[in-house]
Design a protein around this nucleic acid. Structure first.
Lengths: 245, 245
DNA sequence: AAAAAGAGTGACCACATCGTCATTATTGGG
DNA sequence: CCCAATAATGACGATGTGGTCACTCTTTTT
Protein backbone atom coordinates (compact mmCIF):
# COMPACT_ATOMS: atom_id res chain seq x y z
CA UNK A 1 0.00 0.00 0.00
CA UNK A 2 1.98 2.98 1.20
CA UNK A 3 5.04 1.56 -0.39
CA UNK A 4 6.56 4.61 -1.95
CA UNK A 5 8.63 7.36 -0.52
CA UNK A 6 9.21 5.43 2.68
CA UNK A 7 12.82 6.51 2.84
CA UNK A 8 12.64 7.53 6.47
CA UNK A 9 11.33 4.98 8.92
CA UNK A 10 8.35 6.91 10.10
CA UNK A 11 6.43 3.83 11.06
CA UNK A 12 2.71 3.77 10.36
CA UNK A 13 1.83 7.19 9.10
CA UNK A 14 -1.86 7.52 9.76
CA UNK A 15 -2.17 10.40 7.32
CA UNK A 16 -3.20 8.48 4.25
CA UNK A 17 -1.54 10.46 1.55
CA UNK A 18 -1.57 14.03 2.65
CA UNK A 19 0.66 15.99 4.95
CA UNK A 20 3.44 13.48 4.47
CA UNK A 21 6.34 15.88 4.29
CA UNK A 22 8.27 16.16 1.06
CA UNK A 23 11.42 14.12 1.41
CA UNK A 24 13.80 17.01 0.63
CA UNK A 25 15.38 19.22 3.28
CA UNK A 26 14.05 22.61 4.26
CA UNK A 27 14.26 23.75 0.68
CA UNK A 28 11.85 24.89 -1.96
CA UNK A 29 9.36 22.06 -1.72
CA UNK A 30 8.96 22.42 2.01
CA UNK A 31 8.36 26.15 1.71
CA UNK A 32 5.94 25.76 -1.10
CA UNK A 33 4.05 23.11 0.78
CA UNK A 34 3.67 25.34 3.78
CA UNK A 35 2.42 28.15 1.61
CA UNK A 36 -0.12 25.98 -0.12
CA UNK A 37 -1.31 24.58 3.16
CA UNK A 38 -1.80 28.03 4.56
CA UNK A 39 -3.56 29.23 1.43
CA UNK A 40 -6.00 26.36 1.62
CA UNK A 41 -6.56 26.83 5.32
CA UNK A 42 -7.10 30.55 5.01
CA UNK A 43 -9.55 30.28 2.15
CA UNK A 44 -11.42 27.49 3.89
CA UNK A 45 -11.61 29.37 7.17
CA UNK A 46 -13.00 32.42 5.49
CA UNK A 47 -15.68 30.38 3.76
CA UNK A 48 -16.50 28.39 6.89
CA UNK A 49 -17.13 31.57 8.82
CA UNK A 50 -19.15 33.07 5.99
CA UNK A 51 -21.43 30.15 5.26
CA UNK A 52 -21.02 27.62 8.02
CA UNK A 53 -19.03 24.43 7.96
CA UNK A 54 -21.57 22.28 6.19
CA UNK A 55 -22.35 24.60 3.33
CA UNK A 56 -18.77 24.82 2.11
CA UNK A 57 -17.69 22.22 -0.41
CA UNK A 58 -14.24 21.07 -1.32
CA UNK A 59 -14.79 22.65 -4.69
CA UNK A 60 -15.55 25.96 -3.04
CA UNK A 61 -12.31 25.79 -1.13
CA UNK A 62 -10.13 24.83 -4.05
CA UNK A 63 -11.72 27.41 -6.30
CA UNK A 64 -11.23 30.11 -3.69
CA UNK A 65 -7.63 29.05 -3.34
CA UNK A 66 -7.09 28.79 -7.05
CA UNK A 67 -5.92 25.20 -7.16
CA UNK A 68 -7.34 22.05 -8.64
CA UNK A 69 -9.55 19.83 -6.60
CA UNK A 70 -7.09 16.96 -6.54
CA UNK A 71 -4.62 19.22 -4.82
CA UNK A 72 -6.82 19.52 -1.78
CA UNK A 73 -6.72 15.82 -1.22
CA UNK A 74 -2.97 15.87 -1.37
CA UNK A 75 -2.93 18.16 1.63
CA UNK A 76 -5.87 16.96 3.69
CA UNK A 77 -7.64 13.69 4.08
CA UNK A 78 -11.01 15.43 3.98
CA UNK A 79 -12.89 18.39 5.35
CA UNK A 80 -12.78 17.05 8.90
CA UNK A 81 -9.01 16.82 8.77
CA UNK A 82 -8.80 20.38 7.54
CA UNK A 83 -10.97 21.57 10.40
CA UNK A 84 -8.80 19.66 12.81
CA UNK A 85 -5.72 21.33 11.42
CA UNK A 86 -7.34 24.73 11.77
CA UNK A 87 -8.29 24.04 15.34
CA UNK A 88 -5.00 22.55 16.41
CA UNK A 89 -3.04 25.61 17.53
CA UNK A 90 -5.93 27.23 19.38
CA UNK A 91 -6.86 23.98 21.03
CA UNK A 92 -3.29 23.49 22.18
CA UNK A 93 -2.90 26.87 23.76
CA UNK A 94 -6.36 26.90 25.23
CA UNK A 95 -6.18 23.52 26.93
CA UNK A 96 -2.73 24.25 28.21
CA UNK A 97 -3.98 27.50 29.70
CA UNK A 98 -6.95 25.83 31.32
CA UNK A 99 -4.80 23.12 32.83
CA UNK A 100 -2.36 25.66 34.17
CA UNK A 101 -5.28 27.49 35.73
CA UNK A 102 -6.45 24.29 37.34
CA UNK A 103 -3.03 23.66 38.82
CA UNK A 104 -2.81 27.21 40.10
CA UNK A 105 -6.19 26.96 41.75
CA UNK A 106 -5.28 23.76 43.50
CA UNK A 107 -2.86 25.71 45.61
CA UNK A 108 -4.79 28.97 45.71
CA UNK A 109 -5.73 29.85 49.25
CA UNK A 110 -7.02 33.37 48.89
CA UNK A 111 -9.06 35.45 46.54
CA UNK A 112 -6.00 37.13 45.13
CA UNK A 113 -4.48 33.88 43.96
CA UNK A 114 -7.81 32.93 42.45
CA UNK A 115 -7.92 36.21 40.58
CA UNK A 116 -4.48 35.62 39.25
CA UNK A 117 -5.36 32.17 37.95
CA UNK A 118 -8.38 33.50 36.11
CA UNK A 119 -6.43 36.39 34.72
CA UNK A 120 -3.98 33.95 33.20
CA UNK A 121 -6.78 32.14 31.36
CA UNK A 122 -8.15 35.43 30.16
CA UNK A 123 -4.74 36.27 28.77
CA UNK A 124 -4.63 32.98 26.89
CA UNK A 125 -8.02 33.62 25.41
CA UNK A 126 -7.12 37.16 24.46
CA UNK A 127 -3.98 35.93 22.77
CA UNK A 128 -5.89 33.32 20.82
CA UNK A 129 -8.38 35.98 19.82
CA UNK A 130 -5.68 38.16 18.38
CA UNK A 131 -3.69 35.42 16.70
CA UNK A 132 -6.56 33.31 15.38
CA UNK A 133 -9.76 35.33 15.30
CA UNK A 134 -11.22 33.28 12.50
CA UNK A 135 -10.64 30.00 14.25
CA UNK A 136 -12.21 31.29 17.43
CA UNK A 137 -15.17 32.45 15.40
CA UNK A 138 -15.45 29.06 13.79
CA UNK A 139 -15.39 27.43 17.19
CA UNK A 140 -18.08 29.70 18.56
CA UNK A 141 -20.26 29.14 15.52
CA UNK A 142 -20.03 25.41 15.30
CA UNK A 143 -19.27 24.13 18.75
CA UNK A 144 -22.87 23.60 19.76
CA UNK A 145 -23.99 21.64 16.76
CA UNK A 146 -24.19 17.86 16.78
CA UNK A 147 -20.84 16.12 16.66
CA UNK A 148 -21.26 14.88 13.13
CA UNK A 149 -18.98 14.88 10.12
CA UNK A 150 -16.61 17.80 9.88
CA UNK A 151 -18.00 19.30 13.08
CA UNK A 152 -16.87 16.42 15.24
CA UNK A 153 -13.59 17.96 16.29
CA UNK A 154 -15.15 21.30 17.14
CA UNK A 155 -17.75 19.64 19.32
CA UNK A 156 -15.02 17.64 21.03
CA UNK A 157 -13.11 20.76 21.87
CA UNK A 158 -16.28 22.28 23.26
CA UNK A 159 -16.78 19.29 25.51
CA UNK A 160 -13.21 19.56 26.73
CA UNK A 161 -13.62 23.24 27.49
CA UNK A 162 -16.77 22.55 29.45
CA UNK A 163 -15.10 19.78 31.41
CA UNK A 164 -12.13 21.95 32.26
CA UNK A 165 -14.32 24.85 33.27
CA UNK A 166 -16.33 22.75 35.66
CA UNK A 167 -13.15 21.22 36.97
CA UNK A 168 -11.62 24.58 37.62
CA UNK A 169 -14.72 25.82 39.33
CA UNK A 170 -14.74 22.74 41.47
CA UNK A 171 -11.21 23.47 42.59
CA UNK A 172 -12.03 27.07 43.38
CA UNK A 173 -14.84 25.72 45.49
CA UNK A 174 -12.74 23.41 47.60
CA UNK A 175 -11.05 26.32 49.31
CA UNK A 176 -14.32 28.00 50.10
CA UNK A 177 -13.67 30.90 47.79
CA UNK A 178 -17.01 30.71 46.05
CA UNK A 179 -20.65 30.65 46.95
CA UNK A 180 -22.12 27.20 47.33
CA UNK A 181 -23.46 26.89 43.81
CA UNK A 182 -23.00 23.64 41.97
CA UNK A 183 -19.70 23.79 40.07
CA UNK A 184 -21.32 22.37 36.96
CA UNK A 185 -23.77 25.22 36.97
CA UNK A 186 -21.50 28.14 37.72
CA UNK A 187 -18.73 26.80 35.51
CA UNK A 188 -20.97 26.41 32.51
CA UNK A 189 -22.62 29.74 33.16
CA UNK A 190 -19.26 31.45 33.04
CA UNK A 191 -18.30 29.61 29.87
CA UNK A 192 -21.57 30.64 28.30
CA UNK A 193 -21.12 34.25 29.25
CA UNK A 194 -17.55 34.39 28.03
CA UNK A 195 -18.34 32.68 24.76
CA UNK A 196 -21.28 34.93 24.07
CA UNK A 197 -19.16 38.00 24.64
CA UNK A 198 -16.38 36.68 22.46
CA UNK A 199 -18.90 36.16 19.71
CA UNK A 200 -20.09 39.71 20.14
CA UNK A 201 -16.57 41.01 19.82
CA UNK A 202 -15.85 38.94 16.73
CA UNK A 203 -19.18 39.79 15.14
CA UNK A 204 -18.54 43.43 15.78
CA UNK A 205 -21.71 43.85 17.73
CA UNK A 206 -21.61 47.14 19.56
CA UNK A 207 -20.13 46.28 22.85
CA UNK A 208 -17.75 49.10 23.64
CA UNK A 209 -14.06 48.73 24.04
CA UNK A 210 -13.10 45.04 24.04
CA UNK A 211 -10.27 45.88 26.36
CA UNK A 212 -12.80 46.74 29.04
CA UNK A 213 -14.33 43.30 28.82
CA UNK A 214 -12.05 41.42 31.20
CA UNK A 215 -12.74 43.91 33.97
CA UNK A 216 -16.45 43.95 33.32
CA UNK A 217 -16.57 40.18 33.24
CA UNK A 218 -14.62 39.89 36.44
CA UNK A 219 -17.05 42.21 38.16
CA UNK A 220 -20.04 40.36 36.79
CA UNK A 221 -18.80 36.91 37.52
CA UNK A 222 -17.42 37.58 40.94
CA UNK A 223 -19.83 40.12 42.32
CA UNK A 224 -22.87 39.99 40.09
CA UNK A 225 -25.13 42.61 38.68
CA UNK A 226 -26.98 43.90 41.67
CA UNK A 227 -25.89 47.15 43.12
CA UNK A 228 -24.31 46.42 46.48
CA UNK A 229 -26.98 46.71 49.13
CA UNK A 230 -26.44 49.78 51.24
CA UNK A 231 -24.73 51.67 48.45
CA UNK A 232 -26.12 55.00 47.46
CA UNK A 233 -28.97 54.95 44.92
CA UNK A 234 -26.34 55.06 42.23
CA UNK A 235 -26.87 58.24 40.35
CA UNK A 236 -23.58 57.88 38.55
CA UNK A 237 -23.64 58.19 34.84
CA UNK A 238 -23.76 54.85 33.13
CA UNK A 239 -21.06 54.24 30.61
CA UNK A 240 -22.68 54.10 27.24
CA UNK A 241 -26.13 54.57 28.61
CA UNK A 242 -28.46 57.04 26.91
CA UNK A 243 -28.29 60.44 28.51
CA UNK A 244 -31.44 61.67 30.13
CA UNK A 245 -32.60 64.96 28.60
CA UNK B 1 -47.80 30.19 -14.04
CA UNK B 2 -50.08 29.20 -11.17
CA UNK B 3 -52.97 29.04 -13.57
CA UNK B 4 -54.79 26.06 -12.23
CA UNK B 5 -57.20 25.73 -9.36
CA UNK B 6 -57.60 29.47 -9.05
CA UNK B 7 -61.33 29.14 -8.58
CA UNK B 8 -61.45 31.21 -5.44
CA UNK B 9 -60.11 34.71 -5.54
CA UNK B 10 -57.47 34.35 -2.88
CA UNK B 11 -55.53 37.33 -4.12
CA UNK B 12 -51.76 37.11 -3.89
CA UNK B 13 -51.06 34.26 -1.54
CA UNK B 14 -47.37 34.49 -0.89
CA UNK B 15 -47.26 30.85 0.06
CA UNK B 16 -46.58 29.46 -3.37
CA UNK B 17 -48.60 26.33 -3.27
CA UNK B 18 -48.34 24.95 0.20
CA UNK B 19 -50.10 25.81 3.42
CA UNK B 20 -53.05 27.16 1.49
CA UNK B 21 -55.77 25.77 3.68
CA UNK B 22 -58.12 23.21 2.22
CA UNK B 23 -61.28 25.03 1.26
CA UNK B 24 -63.59 22.74 3.25
CA UNK B 25 -64.80 23.45 6.78
CA UNK B 26 -63.19 21.99 9.88
CA UNK B 27 -63.74 18.53 8.51
CA UNK B 28 -61.66 15.58 7.44
CA UNK B 29 -59.22 17.39 5.16
CA UNK B 30 -58.39 19.97 7.76
CA UNK B 31 -57.69 17.35 10.38
CA UNK B 32 -55.59 15.27 8.09
CA UNK B 33 -53.62 18.27 6.99
CA UNK B 34 -52.80 19.15 10.56
CA UNK B 35 -51.68 15.61 11.24
CA UNK B 36 -49.44 15.50 8.20
CA UNK B 37 -47.96 18.84 9.02
CA UNK B 38 -47.14 17.73 12.50
CA UNK B 39 -45.69 14.44 11.29
CA UNK B 40 -43.40 16.27 8.92
CA UNK B 41 -42.39 18.82 11.52
CA UNK B 42 -41.70 16.20 14.16
CA UNK B 43 -39.60 14.04 11.89
CA UNK B 44 -37.69 17.04 10.61
CA UNK B 45 -37.04 18.39 14.09
CA UNK B 46 -35.68 15.07 15.25
CA UNK B 47 -33.33 14.89 12.29
CA UNK B 48 -32.27 18.53 12.62
CA UNK B 49 -31.27 17.99 16.22
CA UNK B 50 -29.49 14.75 15.39
CA UNK B 51 -27.47 15.90 12.43
CA UNK B 52 -27.71 19.66 12.26
CA UNK B 53 -29.86 21.73 9.96
CA UNK B 54 -27.64 21.59 6.91
CA UNK B 55 -27.06 17.88 6.86
CA UNK B 56 -30.72 16.97 6.64
CA UNK B 57 -32.21 16.73 3.16
CA UNK B 58 -35.82 16.92 2.09
CA UNK B 59 -35.55 13.29 1.13
CA UNK B 60 -34.43 12.43 4.66
CA UNK B 61 -37.46 14.18 6.06
CA UNK B 62 -39.99 12.62 3.74
CA UNK B 63 -38.51 9.17 4.16
CA UNK B 64 -38.57 9.52 7.93
CA UNK B 65 -42.16 10.65 7.74
CA UNK B 66 -43.11 7.95 5.28
CA UNK B 67 -44.50 10.18 2.56
CA UNK B 68 -43.44 10.96 -0.96
CA UNK B 69 -41.14 13.82 -1.66
CA UNK B 70 -43.72 15.79 -3.55
CA UNK B 71 -45.87 15.83 -0.44
CA UNK B 72 -43.33 17.89 1.42
CA UNK B 73 -43.56 20.68 -1.10
CA UNK B 74 -47.31 20.70 -0.74
CA UNK B 75 -46.88 21.60 2.92
CA UNK B 76 -43.79 23.79 2.93
CA UNK B 77 -42.17 26.07 0.45
CA UNK B 78 -38.75 24.73 1.34
CA UNK B 79 -36.57 23.84 4.30
CA UNK B 80 -36.36 27.43 5.48
CA UNK B 81 -40.14 27.67 5.65
CA UNK B 82 -40.28 24.48 7.67
CA UNK B 83 -37.75 25.85 10.12
CA UNK B 84 -39.74 29.03 10.39
CA UNK B 85 -42.87 27.04 11.15
CA UNK B 86 -41.03 25.09 13.83
CA UNK B 87 -39.74 28.25 15.42
CA UNK B 88 -42.99 30.18 15.29
CA UNK B 89 -44.63 29.21 18.56
CA UNK B 90 -41.48 29.50 20.64
CA UNK B 91 -40.56 32.77 19.05
CA UNK B 92 -43.98 34.15 19.76
CA UNK B 93 -44.03 33.26 23.43
CA UNK B 94 -40.45 34.24 23.98
CA UNK B 95 -40.64 37.68 22.42
CA UNK B 96 -43.89 38.36 24.17
CA UNK B 97 -42.30 37.42 27.47
CA UNK B 98 -39.29 39.59 26.86
CA UNK B 99 -41.40 42.55 25.91
CA UNK B 100 -43.54 42.14 28.98
CA UNK B 101 -40.40 42.06 31.07
CA UNK B 102 -39.23 45.26 29.44
CA UNK B 103 -42.50 46.97 30.22
CA UNK B 104 -42.41 45.75 33.79
CA UNK B 105 -38.89 47.03 34.27
CA UNK B 106 -39.79 50.44 32.96
CA UNK B 107 -41.87 50.97 36.03
CA UNK B 108 -39.78 48.92 38.43
CA UNK B 109 -38.44 51.09 41.21
CA UNK B 110 -37.01 48.55 43.59
CA UNK B 111 -35.12 45.31 43.54
CA UNK B 112 -38.20 43.30 44.30
CA UNK B 113 -40.01 44.50 41.20
CA UNK B 114 -36.90 43.76 39.16
CA UNK B 115 -36.80 40.25 40.55
CA UNK B 116 -40.39 39.75 39.63
CA UNK B 117 -39.83 40.84 36.05
CA UNK B 118 -36.95 38.44 35.62
CA UNK B 119 -38.87 35.64 37.23
CA UNK B 120 -41.60 36.11 34.63
CA UNK B 121 -39.11 35.66 31.80
CA UNK B 122 -37.70 32.60 33.47
CA UNK B 123 -41.19 31.17 33.61
CA UNK B 124 -41.67 31.78 29.90
CA UNK B 125 -38.43 30.04 29.11
CA UNK B 126 -39.24 27.13 31.36
CA UNK B 127 -42.59 26.75 29.71
CA UNK B 128 -41.05 26.77 26.25
CA UNK B 129 -38.55 24.21 27.43
CA UNK B 130 -41.25 21.85 28.55
CA UNK B 131 -43.54 22.36 25.57
CA UNK B 132 -40.96 22.53 22.80
CA UNK B 133 -37.69 21.03 24.00
CA UNK B 134 -36.66 20.08 20.49
CA UNK B 135 -37.21 23.53 19.09
CA UNK B 136 -35.24 25.11 21.89
CA UNK B 137 -32.45 22.66 21.22
CA UNK B 138 -32.52 23.52 17.56
CA UNK B 139 -32.30 27.18 18.40
CA UNK B 140 -29.37 26.68 20.74
CA UNK B 141 -27.55 24.57 18.17
CA UNK B 142 -27.99 26.75 15.17
CA UNK B 143 -28.45 30.27 16.42
CA UNK B 144 -24.79 31.20 16.25
CA UNK B 145 -24.11 30.05 12.74
CA UNK B 146 -24.11 32.44 9.82
CA UNK B 147 -27.55 33.60 8.74
CA UNK B 148 -27.58 31.63 5.53
CA UNK B 149 -30.16 29.41 3.90
CA UNK B 150 -32.39 27.50 6.26
CA UNK B 151 -30.59 28.96 9.27
CA UNK B 152 -31.62 32.52 8.52
CA UNK B 153 -34.69 32.54 10.70
CA UNK B 154 -32.88 31.02 13.65
CA UNK B 155 -30.16 33.61 13.44
CA UNK B 156 -32.77 36.34 13.24
CA UNK B 157 -34.41 35.12 16.39
CA UNK B 158 -31.05 35.07 18.09
CA UNK B 159 -30.47 38.68 17.13
CA UNK B 160 -33.87 39.64 18.47
CA UNK B 161 -33.19 37.91 21.74
CA UNK B 162 -29.89 39.70 22.09
CA UNK B 163 -31.47 43.04 21.34
CA UNK B 164 -34.23 42.50 23.86
CA UNK B 165 -31.81 41.36 26.51
CA UNK B 166 -29.66 44.43 26.13
CA UNK B 167 -32.75 46.57 26.09
CA UNK B 168 -34.03 45.05 29.28
CA UNK B 169 -30.71 45.46 30.97
CA UNK B 170 -30.63 49.04 29.90
CA UNK B 171 -33.98 49.62 31.53
CA UNK B 172 -32.91 47.96 34.74
CA UNK B 173 -29.96 50.30 34.68
CA UNK B 174 -31.96 53.48 34.41
CA UNK B 175 -33.32 53.09 37.92
CA UNK B 176 -29.91 52.49 39.36
CA UNK B 177 -30.65 48.91 40.26
CA UNK B 178 -27.52 47.50 38.68
CA UNK B 179 -23.83 48.06 38.81
CA UNK B 180 -22.52 50.45 36.21
CA UNK B 181 -21.54 47.84 33.67
CA UNK B 182 -22.33 48.47 30.03
CA UNK B 183 -25.78 47.04 29.32
CA UNK B 184 -24.58 45.43 26.10
CA UNK B 185 -22.00 43.54 28.10
CA UNK B 186 -24.03 42.40 31.06
CA UNK B 187 -27.08 41.65 28.94
CA UNK B 188 -25.19 39.44 26.52
CA UNK B 189 -23.32 37.79 29.35
CA UNK B 190 -26.58 36.78 30.95
CA UNK B 191 -27.96 35.53 27.66
CA UNK B 192 -24.83 33.49 27.14
CA UNK B 193 -24.99 32.00 30.59
CA UNK B 194 -28.66 31.13 30.31
CA UNK B 195 -28.31 29.62 26.87
CA UNK B 196 -25.35 27.52 27.88
CA UNK B 197 -27.23 26.15 30.85
CA UNK B 198 -30.29 25.42 28.76
CA UNK B 199 -28.10 23.50 26.38
CA UNK B 200 -26.70 21.54 29.29
CA UNK B 201 -30.17 20.65 30.47
CA UNK B 202 -31.30 19.58 27.02
CA UNK B 203 -28.12 17.62 26.34
CA UNK B 204 -28.51 15.89 29.64
CA UNK B 205 -25.14 16.99 30.85
CA UNK B 206 -24.89 16.34 34.56
CA UNK B 207 -26.06 19.54 36.08
CA UNK B 208 -28.19 18.48 39.02
CA UNK B 209 -31.84 19.22 39.34
CA UNK B 210 -32.96 21.57 36.59
CA UNK B 211 -35.49 23.02 38.96
CA UNK B 212 -32.66 24.42 41.04
CA UNK B 213 -31.33 26.33 38.06
CA UNK B 214 -33.43 29.47 38.31
CA UNK B 215 -32.35 30.03 41.89
CA UNK B 216 -28.73 29.32 41.12
CA UNK B 217 -28.81 31.61 38.13
CA UNK B 218 -30.42 34.38 40.10
CA UNK B 219 -27.72 34.13 42.70
CA UNK B 220 -24.97 34.08 40.10
CA UNK B 221 -26.30 36.88 38.01
CA UNK B 222 -27.28 39.19 40.78
CA UNK B 223 -24.63 38.53 43.37
CA UNK B 224 -21.87 36.75 41.54
CA UNK B 225 -19.62 33.91 42.49
CA UNK B 226 -17.41 35.32 45.15
CA UNK B 227 -18.19 34.45 48.68
CA UNK B 228 -19.44 37.61 50.35
CA UNK B 229 -16.53 39.38 51.97
CA UNK B 230 -16.72 39.12 55.71
CA UNK B 231 -18.66 35.89 55.62
CA UNK B 232 -17.30 32.92 57.45
CA UNK B 233 -14.71 30.85 55.54
CA UNK B 234 -17.61 28.82 54.19
CA UNK B 235 -17.15 25.35 55.49
CA UNK B 236 -20.61 24.36 54.35
CA UNK B 237 -20.89 21.27 52.28
CA UNK B 238 -21.10 22.04 48.59
CA UNK B 239 -24.11 20.60 46.89
CA UNK B 240 -22.91 17.96 44.55
CA UNK B 241 -19.30 18.52 45.37
CA UNK B 242 -17.03 15.56 46.02
CA UNK B 243 -16.99 14.67 49.68
CA UNK B 244 -13.71 15.04 51.43
CA UNK B 245 -12.64 11.75 53.00
C1' DA C 1 -73.77 8.79 -8.49
C1' DA C 2 -71.10 11.72 -11.07
C1' DA C 3 -68.12 15.50 -11.38
C1' DA C 4 -64.89 18.71 -9.43
C1' DA C 5 -61.30 19.85 -6.34
C1' DG C 6 -57.70 18.59 -3.52
C1' DA C 7 -53.96 15.52 -1.91
C1' DG C 8 -50.34 12.15 -2.67
C1' DT C 9 -47.01 9.80 -5.54
C1' DG C 10 -42.50 8.81 -7.38
C1' DA C 11 -40.06 9.01 -11.74
C1' DC C 12 -37.52 12.46 -13.61
C1' DC C 13 -34.40 16.46 -14.76
C1' DA C 14 -30.57 19.31 -14.04
C1' DC C 15 -27.10 20.06 -11.42
C1' DA C 16 -23.91 19.58 -7.34
C1' DT C 17 -20.55 16.96 -4.80
C1' DC C 18 -17.18 13.58 -3.47
C1' DG C 19 -13.15 11.33 -4.18
C1' DT C 20 -10.14 9.05 -7.79
C1' DC C 21 -6.69 8.65 -11.24
C1' DA C 22 -4.28 8.82 -15.61
C1' DT C 23 -1.81 12.50 -17.36
C1' DT C 24 1.07 16.54 -17.36
C1' DA C 25 4.17 19.91 -15.06
C1' DT C 26 7.72 20.95 -11.68
C1' DT C 27 11.56 20.11 -8.73
C1' DG C 28 15.95 18.34 -6.97
C1' DG C 29 19.83 15.25 -7.44
C1' DG C 30 23.37 13.41 -10.30
C1' DC D 1 21.19 18.69 -18.90
C1' DC D 2 18.65 14.47 -17.92
C1' DC D 3 15.95 11.63 -15.07
C1' DA D 4 13.44 9.95 -11.14
C1' DA D 5 10.53 11.63 -7.56
C1' DT D 6 7.03 14.59 -6.30
C1' DA D 7 3.21 17.82 -7.10
C1' DA D 8 -0.72 19.60 -9.67
C1' DT D 9 -4.42 19.04 -12.79
C1' DG D 10 -9.17 18.46 -14.19
C1' DA D 11 -12.12 15.02 -16.49
C1' DC D 12 -14.67 11.33 -14.80
C1' DG D 13 -17.96 7.97 -12.48
C1' DA D 14 -21.01 7.39 -8.88
C1' DT D 15 -24.12 9.14 -6.01
C1' DG D 16 -26.89 12.77 -3.81
C1' DT D 17 -30.15 16.70 -3.98
C1' DG D 18 -33.73 20.25 -4.84
C1' DG D 19 -37.65 20.85 -7.07
C1' DT D 20 -41.33 19.63 -10.76
C1' DC D 21 -45.12 17.34 -12.86
C1' DA D 22 -48.26 14.15 -15.11
C1' DC D 23 -50.76 10.92 -13.08
C1' DT D 24 -53.58 8.39 -9.58
C1' DC D 25 -56.22 8.25 -5.40
C1' DT D 26 -59.36 10.49 -1.94
C1' DT D 27 -62.55 13.79 -0.35
C1' DT D 28 -66.06 17.17 -1.09
C1' DT D 29 -69.60 19.22 -3.72
C1' DT D 30 -73.41 19.07 -6.83
Amino acid sequence: MTSRGETRGKGADTRPEAARRPGPPGGRRETHRRERTKELEDAALRLFVERGLDLVTIDDITQATGVAKGTFYRYFEDKAALVDALLAPVRGELLEGLEACGRALEVARDVEAMFEAYRAVAAVIASALLQYPGVVRLYLQESRGPAVGARTKVAELSKLVARHAVDITQKAHTHGLLRPVRAAVSGLAVVGAVERLLLAVLSEEDIGNPLDLPDALTTLVLDGLRVPPGARPARRKLDGGPKRP
